[in-house]
């Protein structure tokens, strides 16, 4: 998985032994703050709600690794909660993260939410399209504190891509492939 949005570039490579958790590498680079994070990420599914026409998920995300800024390295950790609820027509999600390093590089909170609607409802095997609005709030990072990003999500089978342009004129491009 690789992601580029209004605030950072990131890359994830995860292995899921079970649907309940995944473990892997996560690299993030906060462009304005010039902070690079390289860490091991563990995602846990705390709760899943499977309903006849919808699904909801609640996740706990945690990272530990190295934070680098201007050649200085510190141990860092982050923890966050993520949740989503979707039908085949509507989507809503929220996630937050608190980052802390053992020095002065990081002590930051960030959160974001999305709402989405599918302009048509596609069946299995067809191209799925979603129109989404993402609102990000990062009060302790440099740059705009609130950033909105309208985006298009498309997926088919095991491949997903997202394209958007944020309110601070940055391109959002995310790509996820499942193996």
């Amino acid at each position: 998985m690789q992601m580029n949005d209004a605030m950072k570039n990131s890359i994830h490579a995860h292995y899921s032994p079970s649907y309940k958790y995944s473990v892997g590498y996560k690299g993030e680079y906060f462009r304005k703050d010039q902070i690079a994070l390289n860490g091991i990420q563990l995602n846990n599914l705390i709760k899943r709600w499977n309903l006849p026409a919808s699904q909801g998920n609640l996740y706990l995300e945690s990272n530990i690794g190295n934070a680098n800024k201007s050649g200085k390295n510190e141990l860092y950790g982050s923890v966050g909660i993520a949740g989503d609820f979707e039908t085949r027509k509507y989507f809503i999600s929220y996630e937050n993260n608190y980052y802390k390093s053992d020095g002065d590089i990081l002590s930051n909170f960030a959160q974001s939410a999305r709402i989405g609607v599918a302009p048509y409802v596609a069946n299995y095997g067809n191209l799925h399209t979603w129109l989404m609005l993402q609102v990000s709030h990062q009060p302790e990072f440099k740059g705009d504190k609130v950033i909105t990003t309208p985006l298009v999500r498309i997926f088919k089978g095991a491949h997903l891509a997202e394209f958007g342009v944020s309110s601070n004129k940055r391109i959002l491009f995310n790509f996820i492939a499942r193996f």
Partner: peptide
């Protein structure tokens, strides 16, 4: 009959 079948990207598993 399966509950939670809403997202193809997740159901591929």
């Amino acid at each position: 009959d399966v509950n939670g079948l809403v997202c193809e990207f997740c159901v591929v598993t």
